[in-house]
Computed example of a mutant assay.
Amino acid sequence: MKDSELRRHRERPVPAEVDPSGRALYRAHIRLGQGDGAPRLFFLDATGTGGSVCVGYAGRHLPLR
């Protein structure tokens, strides 16, 4: 993600076994409900590194610009 402001909203804590820095970029998300105002759940598939799926954020859609 090139825009540092957008990246800042999507970088969230993760367990050290997922990333030694303790932070990761959560790009994947799903909409929980219908319509543009429905909350989003941002997640990270870490099954290949830490054996889990990390949830980084649940709420209003994060900024797009």
Results as ranks from 00 to 15, higher is better:
A46W: 04
G37P: 13
V18D: 13
G35N: 04
P39D: 11
A38S: 14
I30H: 13
R60F: 11
L6W: 04
Y26E: 06
M1D: 07
E11P: 03
R65K: 13
M1P: 05
F42K: 09
T47M: 07
R8P: 05
L62N: 12
H61L: 08
Q34S: 15
D45C: 12
V53Q: 06
V53C: 05
E11M: 04
D3M: 03
R23L: 04
F43Y: 15
P13M: 00
C54L: 09
R8C: 04
G37H: 09
E5I: 14
G51T: 02
Y57T: 04
A46D: 09
M1T: 10
G56K: 06
L41V: 15
R65A: 13
A38R: 07
D19I: 06
C54F: 05
R60W: 10
R31M: 08
G50A: 07
G48I: 07
R31D: 10
D36E: 08
A24L: 02
E11F: 00
S21L: 08
L41A: 15
L62K: 10
H29W: 12
G35S: 10
Y57K: 09
D45N: 15
G35V: 10
S52A: 11
A16G: 05
G56C: 01
R60L: 11
P13T: 04
G33F: 11
D19R: 00
L25H: 00
P20F: 00
L64H: 12
L41N: 11
Q34M: 10
P63W: 09
A28S: 15
H29L: 08
F42G: 12
S4H: 09
G50D: 00
L32R: 11
R8H: 05
H61D: 08
D19A: 06
R23Q: 02
V53S: 07
L41I: 13
M1R: 07
Y57F: 14
A24F: 01
L62I: 03
A16T: 08
R12Q: 06
G56R: 03
D19F: 03
V53K: 08
L6G: 03
L25S: 00
G33A: 11
R10F: 02
A28K: 13
H29T: 12
S21F: 06
T49H: 01
L32N: 14
D36G: 15
P13R: 00
G35D: 06
F43C: 11
F42W: 15
R65Q: 13
P13F: 02
L25E: 00
Y57A: 08
R40V: 07
A24K: 02
P63F: 09
V55R: 12
E5M: 11
E17P: 08
Y26P: 08
G51D: 03
G50W: 05
L64S: 14
H29C: 14
I30D: 14
A24R: 00
L32C: 14
R7T: 11
Y26F: 15
R31A: 14
R31Q: 14
R23I: 01
I30F: 12
F43G: 10
R7H: 05
R7M: 05
Q34R: 15
G33R: 05
D3G: 03
G50T: 07
L6S: 04
P15T: 02
A28T: 03
G50R: 05
A38D: 13
Y26C: 06
G51K: 03
C54T: 01
T47P: 09
M1F: 10
R65D: 15
